[in-house]
Design a binder for these strands. Structure first.
Length: 737
DNA sequence: AGCACGCCGACT
DNA sequence: GTCGGCGTGCTC
């Protein structure tokens, strides 16, 4: 006979139901993990929580759609819920969408939104003083000064008040002890003042006014819409989108301005301040941790109304975002190429669509993708073909190097030399652009023909004469420049082939020994700080001839710059990058746009061996239409037709054999995919074969869902390759909407 | 992503 | 004899 336990202990209580929620943890798990919720803890989807994960505590977010069948014994309780607004439904949808699209684990995407160690608890209140009233028992001159300084202001900090009165804090402490002031707690001060949409209303007129009005219509409508401002450098694009920002602020919504990191300069922030009376909050990688926390927190709470940031700012969980501006829309810096691979420009479009608010793309040289989306009517294109105010575009000419050959051993044509001479004579500045660091891109032995190659990655070693080094620009390898050929041992017979900026400087100094010449490239000694100083010095007119690589292309205004000479306009067209022509067009447009921004008559001379090339024609004529048509056709041809319409895949690897092997595997694994083609490292963009990834997939397709399904299959079949597969979908302009 | 465990080379 | 390199595996 058995004893029913209920006889002994009373009726059996059903065990208390354990409440379980899914939590996205910041690691590459394929889906959220399950955690139990302790008695009395309130969580909802989006709540920011701390949970145990293995041996440590991590930050995560409560999510929907986790794992059902997890062993209840494994469940561990949530450690704490932060007093922080939960991630909104929109934000969660955005994270999931980005994870799905980029084939990244959602936890890693969420991590980008939560990468602020101490911002999840409210900022501590700040101790302050309030004037209560009355007079101290003994009035002293110091005390009188404090009372005088306090004036009508309601609240002070202890130190601030002492400072304002010019006394030590002990005087203030004495007044507190007497009850004249009382200690109160104040909310922490905002990181930036509120921008005022009416601070300095626009003086736009003509095409700029029309453009602004067109965008304002979208902003007032408040729904998802993408506008593309396609305007030449100096056409007032910024002023136009400032109007969209003003309108959004009036509607009570927050604004995000995305900029390539390099364009987040003091001068941009000042322009914003001139229009809105306050600076926007900044967001970029080298923000001080405390500032970073404040900006995050105040974006979530809605304290901050406008953030100007680099691509990672896209993952800030704004309280009520109502407009995104993507300035320099074409800039490759919007691509992140580690961990989660994404293009912030495209993901911004997605965020705007999910949040149902307008977005403005801005560029002087739109990307081919945006151009196509404009043509197809998906985006509204707004053209600003002329410069704003008294600035005029430089007068551009091609110098056909076959007819105007430089002297032996030189790289500057007589035409360009003459133009430099005239410019310097007028006390104006010339910019010579060559996108090549160092002295010479190739060194060889005149006796045996030995070429100096990188022992690690086989690209040519670049001579840096100033540092007396041979450097590899791919992997960073460097060695002291030898005096003898390592192959045949002959001394003094090494010759430099081709130009770098250092070599151009040498040639310039030979022709213009009196001129003040300066070389600007990323290997400038002294880092960013020194660079800033040099740029300021140039702007002040402390140099006559500037020789620079692409870092002179952006940002700074040089009021005296009236001549731009492109040493080798064809450079960059020759490599195997499918975007070579597009990149060249963008770069050369930007560089020539450096001149003439402040009204002085200016010129540009482009030295080229291919004067008929569409890029050259587009730049000198200022009419990019034909160039874009060609690029679009080219890309369509390269990507779609040979493989049919369903999908096509380009595999790239470090060697062609590897790529062929991977491609064969894929053809076997997925015969339904119609096109798999192979790019060896020579043809593939450099960025694709560099780095620690063994191979990458470049995926192009019309139907994103097909591509993703296919790739998931691939990933499932070879889980070991998981970490080394890179999917880049942004090449196809159609795929992400 | 972190962090532990675990198995082979150059050193106090 | 150890210290330490990074390959593999695991985290609700």
């Amino acid at each position: 006979m058995s004893i029913d336990s209920s006889d002994l202990f009373g009726p059996i209580e059903p065990p208390p139901a354990v409440r379980t929620v899914s939590v996205l943890v910041p690691m590459p798990a394929p889906r959220p993990y399950s955690y139990s919720v302790p008695e009395g803890m309130a969580v909802e989807p989006g709540s920011v929580v701390q949970v145990p994960l293995g041996p440590r505590q991590v930050i995560g977010a409560v999510w929907e759609g986790g794992d059902e069948g997890v062993d209840p014994k494994k469940l561990r309780p949530i450690t704490k819920v932060f007093d922080c607004p939960p991630l909104s439904k929109e934000m969660r949808d955005f994270v999931d969408w980005v994870a799905g699209y980029t084939l990244s684990p959602p936890g890693l995407v969420a991590r980008m939104a939560l990468r602020v160690p101490n911002a999840f608890d409210p900022e501590p209140m700040v101790e302050g003083l309030r004037f209560v009233g009355g007079e101290p028992e003994r009035m002293t001159p110091a005390r009188a000064r404090v009372l005088d300084a306090a004036g009508d202001e309601l609240s002070w900090t202890r130190i601030g008040l002492a400072h304002a009165a010019g006394v030590s804090t002990s005087v203030v402490d004495g007044l507190i002890a007497q009850g004249i002031f009382e200690t109160i707690f104040l909310p922490p001060p905002p990181i930036v003042a509120k921008p005022d949409p009416d601070f300095a209303p626009s003086r736009l007129a003509g095409p700029q006014k029309e453009a602004a009005d067109e965008i304002l219509e979208e902003v007032r409508n408040g729904q998802f819409a993408v506008s593309l401002i396609d305007g030449v450098t100096g056409s007032g694009k910024t002023e136009v989108y400032f109007e969209a920002i003003a309108e959004t602020l009036k509607r009570g919504k927050q604004v995000l301005i995305l900029l390539p990191e390099i364009a987040l300069t003091a001068s941009f922030l000042e322009r914003f301040q001139d229009r809105f009376g306050a600076k926007p909050a900044e967001w970029h990688s080298d923000l001080a941790p405390k500032t970073r926390e404040k900006v995050w927190r105040q974006a979530v709470t809605g304290e901050v109304r406008v953030v100007a940031g680099a691509r990672s700012a896209l993952f800030l969980p704004f309280e009520d975002l109502g407009l995104i501006i993507v300035d320099e829309e074409h800039d490759p810096a919007y691509k992140q190429e580690d961990r989660v691979y994404y293009n912030a420009r495209d993901m911004a479009v997605v965020r705007a669509r999910i949040g149902d608010f307008p977005l403005v793309l801005v560029s002087a040289t739109p990307s081919v993708e945006s151009q196509v989306n404009g043509q197809s009517g998906r985006y509204t294109t707004i053209h600003l073909p002329t410069r704003f105010g008294d600035a005029a575009l430089p007068d551009l000419h091609l110098v056909d190097m076959r007819r105007h050959a430089p002297e032996r051993g030189g790289f500057l044509s007589p035409v360009l030399l003459r133009a430099i001479g005239k410019t310097v004579e007028k006390q104006q500045q010339a910019l010579l652009f060559l996108n090549r660091r160092g002295y010479a891109p190739l060194t060889l032995c005149r006796v045996c023909g030995h070429r100096f190659q990188c022992p690690q990655c086989s690209s040519w070693l670049v001579e840096h004469r100033f540092k007396r080094q041979l450097q590899c620009h791919q992997c960073g390898y460097h060695q002291h420049t030898p005096e003898a050929c390592p192959e045949c041992g002959t001394f003094d017979h090494l010759v430099a082939c081709g130009p770098g900026v250092e070599r151009i400087a040498e040639e310039v100094e030979r022709h213009f020994p009196e001129a003040r010449t300066i070389v600007l490239s990323s290997d400038i000694m002294g880092g960013v700080k020194r660079l800033r100083l040099e740029l300021d010095a140039i702007a002040k007119g402390e140099a006559d001839i500037v020789i620079g690589t692409q870092l002179v292309a952006k940002g700074h205004n040089f009021p005296l710059m009236t001549l731009v000479g492109i040493i080798d306009a064809d450079l960059g067209l020759a490599n195997g990058d499918p975007r070579a022509a597009e990149r060249t067009f963008q770069l050369l447009s930007q560089v020539t746009g450096r001149a003439g921004r402040t009204g002085l008559k200016s010129h540009g001379l482009l030295q080229t061996y291919q004067p008929q090339h569409p890029v050259m024609q587009a730049i000198v004529s200022g009419d990019a239409g034909a160039f874009y048509e060609r690029e679009i056709a080219e890309r369509e041809r390269a990507i779609l037709p040979p493989f049919g319409r369903l999908a096509s895949i380009i595999v790239s690897a470090e060697t062609r054999q590897d790529a062929e092997g991977h491609a064969r595997g894929m053809r076997n694994a997925a015969p339904q995919v119609t096109g798999i083609s192979v790019l060896g490292p020579a043809e593939a963009p450099l960025a694709l074969v560099r780095g620690r990834h063994r191979f990458r997939l470049l995926v192009h397709g019309r139907r994103n869902s097909d591509m993703q399904a296919y790739l998931r299959t691939m990933l499932a079949q070879s889980p070991k390759e998981r970490g080394s597969i890179h999917v880049q979908l942004d090449i196809d302009p159609q795929s992400f909407l």
